[in-house]
Amino acid sequence: MEAPFDDLARLVGEAAHRVTNAQVSSVLAATGSEKATFEIIAAAALGAGLSRWDRAVKVLVEATDASE
């Protein structure tokens, strides 16, 4: 991905509370589409959540496999 998409996606993943109006507007201007902008935000959020899910389930399996 290129900036501004990359910048917005990364910040949504790392610190979404720091996303600014300007960043979202910049992606909106680059894509020309609200749905596309929403999709970038949703995909970045999903990535952050699902990677945590994956990690958490793996450590739980590891913890229970070791004890069995």
Binding site: L8, L11, V12, G13, A16, H17, V19, N21, V24, I41, A42, A44, A45, L46, A48, G49, L50, R52
Partner: peptide, 11 residues
């Protein structure tokens, strides 16, 4: 961890 991210990003 998903919901809070889009809530913040969309303000």
């Amino acid at each position: 961890n998903i919901v809070t991210r889009y809530a913040n990003a969309l303000d």
